[in-house]
Each structure stands twice: as structure tokens, then as C-alpha cells.
Design a protein around this nucleic acid. Structure first.
Length: 423
RNA sequence: GGCGGGAUGGCAGAGCGGUCAAUUGCACCGGGCUGUAAACUCGGCGCCCUGACGGGCUACGCAGGUUCGAAUCCUGCUCCCGCCA
């Protein structure tokens, strides 16, 4: 068993308090850190929703910090539990994934995962390794370790049960399977968000049953999404993906409500506790413009997931586009064949001083065509409400001329430069 | 196995024979004000045709039926929930 570096008191505090919700039992964890033994840090994921958000990053950053001390991460690909779907979400039935989809999803996940976690210090394991061998008797024996009452201790099950929403019997299996993973990989510590506490505790219980020392449960706070209301999640659309491009990441951070600023600093950056407290105070007491703290936060986060230059660039674009209301520097170009489009709408293409143009076009149809509106009806509404801007002028009629190099702006965020794809 | 209740737009939840593309709230989109914050305010929120007025199509679990006309009534089916066994 390789050794780990023993943290000093400050480091222990950092590892056990900053961005940590709960460590059960805490004393055991501190003792383990001080033992100098390299710990096996388990974390699992379902290969069903491959976009990692900065919400996931809270826990991953913790894993990374511990790796830097010489501890090893064991990441488990939940190819079996994915078939059940973690019941902690809504009771949506998940589509069964094919083996190929699972593999592709897992790869996508791991690529993002290793953007934060050190690959060299990580062991990747698939549930198939042990559940592939499982027979019905194994399942029965596993299930026999628990009672229905125990399972109903889980808040989610209890709530659904109480409010007469269906709870599938197979869903009760989810925590047990996840718990068994801990037995299979002999985990010393398991990581998860606070919503995982129940599942992680099940692992403890099972390990005990199988004669292993029970794992330490390490939970991190759930990051609230950009809406400031609920847990960040992809399905709710209130997320920032770790792979979001710099300017998008920057913009999304700028859109979070003020009361989240300090939390984000605390959970997603290494800014010292004292400074985080200072920011929290200044926001609460309105002693400084929260916008500035937020810009700093956005810069920090983009730097972390991209680079310092990307962050500076994103900030510049942000100020230009939103504070000054100018056009951003890099506008996505949309190449469209003028000849074909003109033909489709039965209009002639003119050539004025070498610039192609098609007159008397329906703006709504073109907006729908290039994807700036989801339908022609939607485009009509946008035009009528003054949301469409062409080359800097609000355009409220449907009639317009399609000209090579036009820049559309729809609402505040959507920009598109039209380029003629012919020739 | 028996009895009862229910399935409506992203969610919640009205509607119970025409005036329903469907009240309302939330969410969402756009305008204004801003710090792409909050609050506020105004407008929108199935698809298609139309400059507009207006028109057409598709929708209220699924399949049939009654009716001039159905989200609303009837029959069968599927699924969910509760109580009892």
C-alpha cells in the first residue's frame, strides 16, 4: 500500500471543512488522513447524462485535493444502476441504454472527469465486473440485509410514498447495488452530494456485513443552479457545464443571483475563507457593488476550467456585448446558399458591387431557417415585439433584404452573421 | 381478487356537450428599467398561411361510438393511485 503525505492542521481543516457538507465519522477520517496510508476514494456515476456541470466539480475538486496528498480515486461506471436510474430525481422512467451508448457516455463522462481529477491516480471500474456474475440468489441475499422501513428512511422514497407517487420496487435496489460497489472495490471513503447520503450509508452497512471496515461517508454541498432556486442540474437547464466555452461560462456566472456569489466562491474556488467571508458580508450589507464580485468570480471560474487568457477574453467580450451593448467580437457565422434560398422563396439574387443580396424576403422565415427562432410563428412574435435587430437596427416588419454579411441579433444573447455559401 | 378514484399543454391544476388552442399559477421567451442580479412593468407562450383582418391543421392517455357539434357523454383497452383481501 503506497503512502500518502500527512496533512498539517491547516490542511486538515481545508480538506475536512471547506466545501464539505458532512463527514461520517469525521474523527475516523482525520485519523485516516494522519495515518499516512493511501486511501481508496470511491465515487460512482451513471453513464446516462454525460454533461458534467460545475456542480459536479465541487466534489471532484475535493477528490483532486486528496489525490494531491497521495490518495487514490476509484471511479465506478454504474452501467447496472444506470438501468434503474437514481430515484433521487423525478420519477421519470429512463430509457434503457444499449451497451454502445453506455460506453460512449462513459467515455464522455470520463473525459470531463479527468479535466479535474488526476488520471494517474485513478482506477476506473465497471459494475459489470461484479454484477455480471450476480445471480438471483445473490440479489435476494443482498436485499435480505434491509427492511422496507429502512429503505423508507430515505427522504425521497418517503416523500413519494407519502404523496402517493409511485415507488418502483426495483428502485429500492438502487441503494443496495451502489452500496455493494463499495464492498467490491473495498472503498475507504465514498464521495457524493448531500442527496447521496442515504446511498452512501447503505454502503457502510453492507461493508460491515461483508466483514470490511465501513467506508467513511463524505458529502459535499449541492451547488444551487444559476436560477438561484434549486440544485444545479442539466435537466432543469440551470447549469454551467464544465465544458461550456469561456464566454458562455462567463455569461452564465454573471447571471446568477447575488445571494449565490459567496457560495460559489466557497465551493468552486480556492479563495481563502477570510476573503469569502468578506465578499459574503459586502454582498449582504450592500457595501460594494455585487457586480464586481461576480465578475471576479466569473474570471476565477473560467480561468479554472479554461485559462487565464480565455477568462480575460471572455470578460472583455462580456463588457463589450452587455455593458456597452455592442456586438461581440466573434459572431458565429451561418453559411447559407443565397442561390438556393432565393430560389426557395422565388426571389432573384442581385449583385451590388460584388455583394450578393436577395430583396423582399420574409424575415420570419429566414430567422426560422437559420435557427434563430424555433418556428416561423415564433419568429413573427419576436419581430413584432422588437426583439430582432439587423446590423444594429431594430427591425419590426417582416420584409427585409438578405445581404451577404448581415448580422442578426435576436434578444440579448443570440447573434448570427449570415454568409453566402455560394462560390 | 373486490371496491373506489384518476389520466388535460414543461409542471401544478381548471374546464364536464357548442362562446376551448383550452381559466389560472409556476417555468419559459421578448420589450422597458438594470449589473445577462433581484424587484418591478408591459407583451408573448401548438404549427402553418396572411402586412393585417382573418383562415387552416393538429392537440386534452389509446381505440372506437353517440351527436349537427365532444377535453366534456357511452363502450373497450392501457397505465397510475387509494382502501380491503
Amino acid at each position: 500500500m503506497p503512502d500518502a503525505r500527512v496533512p498539517n492542521d491547516d490542511e486538515v481543516r481545508w480538506l475536512t471543512e471547506r466545501a464539505v457538507a458532512e463527514i461520517i465519522p469525521r474523527d475516523d477520517f482525520v485519523r485516516a488522513l494522519k495515518s499516512g496510508k493511501s486511501l481508496r476514494l470511491k465515487m460512482g456515476f451513471d453513464p446516462s447524462a454525460p454533461d458534467l456541470t460545475i456542480g459536479h466539480a465541487v466534489g471532484l475538486r475535493k477528490l483532486r485535493q486528496l489525490q494531491d496528498f497521495g490518495h487514490r480515486v476509484v471511479i465506478i461506471v454504474g452501467d447496472w444502476t444506470a438501468q434503474i436510474g437514481d430515484p433521487s430525481g423525478q420519477s421519470k422512467t429512463r430509457p434503457m441504454l444499449t451497451a454502445e451508448e453506455v460506453k460512449a457516455n462513459a467515455e464522455t463522462y470520463l473525459r470531463q472527469f479527468f479535466g479535474i481529477v488526476d488520471r494517474e491516480m485513478t482506477e476506473v471500474r465497471w459494475q459489470t465486473e461484479w454484477f455480471g456474475e450476480f445471480g438471483l440468489s445473490d440479489v435476494v441475499r443482498l436485499a435480505a440485509q434491509f427492511t422496507v422501513a429502512q429503505m423508507l428512511e430515505r427522504a425521497d422514497f418517503a416523500d413519494r410514498f407519502a404523496s402517493h407517487k409511485p415507488v418502483g420496487v426495483h428502485e429500492l435496489l438502487y441503494p443496495m447495488l451502489q452500496g455493494y460497489d463499495s464492498v467490491a472495490v473495498q472503498a475507504d471513503v465514498e464521495f457524493g452530494g448531500t442527496d447521496q447520503k442515504f446511498n452512501l450509508m447503505v454502503g457502510r452497512e453492507l461493508q460491515h456485513h461483508f466483514g470490511q471496515p465501513p467506508q467513511i461517508v463524505y458529502t459535499v454541498p449541492l451547488l444551487v443552479g444559476t436560477d438561484g432556486e434549486v440544485k444545479m442540474s442539466k435537466s432543469l437547464g440551470n447549469y454551467v457545464a464544465v465544458e461550456d466555452p469561456p464566454h458562455e461560462m462567463y455569461g452564465k456566472i454573471m447571471s446568477i443571483p447575488d445571494h449565490l456569489i459567496a457560495d460559489y466562491f466557497e465551493l468552486l474556488t480556492d479563495l481563502p475563507d477570510a476573503e469569502v467571508a468578506e465578499i459574503r458580508g459586502s454582498v449582504d450589507q450592500h457595501t460594494a457593488n455585487p457586480r464586481d464580485a461576480k465578475m471576479r468570480l466569473a474570471r476565477e471560474i473560467v480561468t479554472q476550467f479554461h485559462s487565464l487568457t480565455a477568462a480575460a477574453d471572455a470578460e472583455e467580450q462580456f463588457v463589450r456585448t452587455f455593458s456597452k451593448r455592442e456586438l461581440p467580437e466573434d459572431i458565429t457565422e451561418y453559411r447559407i446558399s443565397f442561390a438556393r434560398t432565393a430560389d426557395k422563396f422565388q426571389r432573384p439574387v442581385f449583385d451590388v458591387d460584388g455583394v450578393k443580396r436577395v430583396d423582399s424576403m420574409s424575415l420570419a422565415k429566414v430567422l426560422a431557417e437559420v435557427g434563430l427562432a424555433s418556428s416561423v410563428s415564433e419568429a413573427r412574435r419576436l419581430i413584432k415585439s422588437g426583439a430582432v435587430d439587423i446590423d444594429g437596427d431594430v427591425h419590426t416588419s417582416d420584409d427585409f433584404a438578405l445581404i451577404d454579411g448581415l448580422v442578426f441579433r435576436v434578444g440579448k444573447h443570440k447573434f448570427l452573421k449570415i454568409m453566402n455559401a455560394d462560390g
